[in-house]
Structures are given as C-alpha cells and as structure tokens.
Simulated assay, not measured.
Amino acid sequence: MDFRFANALKKMMDRLASWMNSLIVSLPNIIIAILVFLIVLFLSKYLSRIVLKLLKNSSLQASMKHLISKLVSVLVVFFGMFLILGILDLSKTLNTILAGAGVAGLAIGLALQGAISNTYSGIILSYIDQIKFGDWIQSNDYEGEVVDINLRTVTIKQRDNNLVYLPNKLVLENPIRNFSTTPKTRIIVDCGIAYSSDLEFVKKLVKQTVSQAFKEFNSEEEVIFIYKEFGESSINFETRFWVESKSALQVAIAKSKAIIAIKAAFDKNNINIPFPIRTLDFPKSYFEKNNEA
C-alpha cells in the first residue's frame, strides 16, 4: 500500500515538474502573447475611432457608421486572437476550433435565431433611409423620436420623455409611420353647428379663420371645408388644412390652435355648437294614469 502511494506521489511530482518546465520554456511566448493582446485591444478601439471619423462626412446614416466601426473593431480582435494562438504554438487547437465551428455555429444559430434576426434587421434599418436618428415615428402602437438604432433594438423617446426599446425585427416587419419624411402635414378638424345656422356663412367664416391662423401655409382657397352629415343634434362638418410638422406633437398643437380659433370665431358671430339633444316622446295615456293616481 505504501509502495503504491509513493509511486503515485512520484508520478504526480514528475508531472508537475514537467508542467513547470513547459511553463518556463513557454514563458517568453506567454509574455509576448499578453503584450500582443493588449496591443490588439488598443488598435481595435483606435481603428474604430478612425473609421468613425472617416465616415463622418459620408452620406451614410449615423447608425450605419457606428455599425461599420464596430465591425472593424471586432475583426481586429479576431485577427489578434488567431495571432496569439500562433504565438502560443496552439495551431492544433486552432484547427480543432475551426473544425468544431460548423457544428457549434449551427447549434448557436438555432438557439439564438431571435437575436440573429434582430441583428440582421438592425443592419437593414441602419442602411435604409425610411428611418434615421431624429425622426418622429409611429410603430407597433408606440410613437416618439428615434434616438438610437443598434444591432438589437430601435430606441424611441416618447412625448412624455420615456424611452421605448423596440426589437429590430418588429420594426422591420410592421408598418412604420414617419412624420419627419415630409415637411407638411394635413390637419383634419371635425365640428358641428346648429340646424338654424347659415351654412354658407359658416363655411366662409371657418375658411377665413383657418387661413388667417395658418397663413404661412394656407390661403382661403386652399382650406377645404366639407359638410359631412345631418347629425342627431347638429350638422357636422370637416375642415382640412396644411401645417408644417415633423412630429405628432406638432400636429396636436396645430389642431388645438385651430379649434381655439374656430370656437372664438363662432362665439363672436353667435354661432352655436349644440350639445347632444335627445327628445323623449311619452304617450298621452302615461300622463292620464299619473293624474288619476
């Protein structure tokens, strides 16, 4: 028993001595590999900044510029890792890694297909012109200003200053309403007037009021006024006009301004906007029974 223990201890010490000798022999290569690794990290950051500066005056979107700079940084790091494996004389390990990369890539692709889909969608969104930094968009029932587009999400800032992170895949696959692609937006205001009103006078008054309130974009002829229907308690109409707008908030402000101006004009000219009225018709027998009681 003592002989076996001593033999096992001797083999372990021999193995440790062999490892120590290998470590001492490889120590210069390890030091060089560490220095190369630090240099590669520095170069990846430095080249990423240089690429970003070179692309600054290009016509690419800001998100695409950041994406290209990050890809350059990643490629430099990968090149450095292969160089380090060569310095450490781990070429066999490198071959093993490359041989298993196919199987591992398939497994990782199946496990991360959602993330990969978002990454691919992020690249597409960074390249197209329909959405870019600073645009006011509406997508997936959320609305706000685009403040970031990365490889995972599109970040929008809502009018209440809250941030919403939308997965790139959902943004790319669903309709996007971009308020910033056109300099002008048509505003539609609905209202109703009493049946006793002079319809021609009301039409002329509303068109004059709106054209004066937004005279930089509308003349009286350009304001569209349409009577829509005979409502339960009013004759309803619709007014359409143009305003400068690059966000839904500007649209809401312009609509509020138009409502205030139209209401003031109606009050000045004694034009009534009626409340909903419901007429109740009771049969005569109802009152006769109540009188008898």
Rank of each mutant, 00 (worst) to 15 (best):
G102E: 01
L55N: 02
S44W: 00
K169N: 12
I34F: 12
S91M: 06
F82P: 02
Y120S: 09
G86F: 05
F266K: 10
I273N: 12
K45W: 04
N236K: 15
L170S: 14
K45I: 03
L112K: 13
T279D: 10
K263E: 10
D141I: 08
S126D: 01
K228N: 11
V202Y: 02
L88D: 00
L67M: 09
I253L: 14
N178G: 03
E232N: 15
F266E: 01
L41S: 08
D135Q: 06
K157P: 04
G105F: 04
L41T: 04
I271C: 02
L98P: 01
A104R: 00
L27F: 12
E222V: 07
K11I: 07
G192V: 07
K45A: 11
G122C: 06
E221L: 03
Q113N: 12
I84R: 06
F133W: 11
S91C: 02
F133S: 13
D129M: 03
L249C: 01
R278D: 12
Q158T: 10
P274M: 03
K70W: 10
T155F: 06
T181K: 02
A8Q: 14
V251F: 03
S121F: 00
K203N: 02
L249V: 13
K207L: 00
M13E: 14
A261D: 05
A8T: 15
P183V: 03
R240Q: 14
L54Q: 09
I235L: 14
Q250M: 08
G80W: 08
R177E: 10
A104I: 15
K204L: 09
F5C: 09
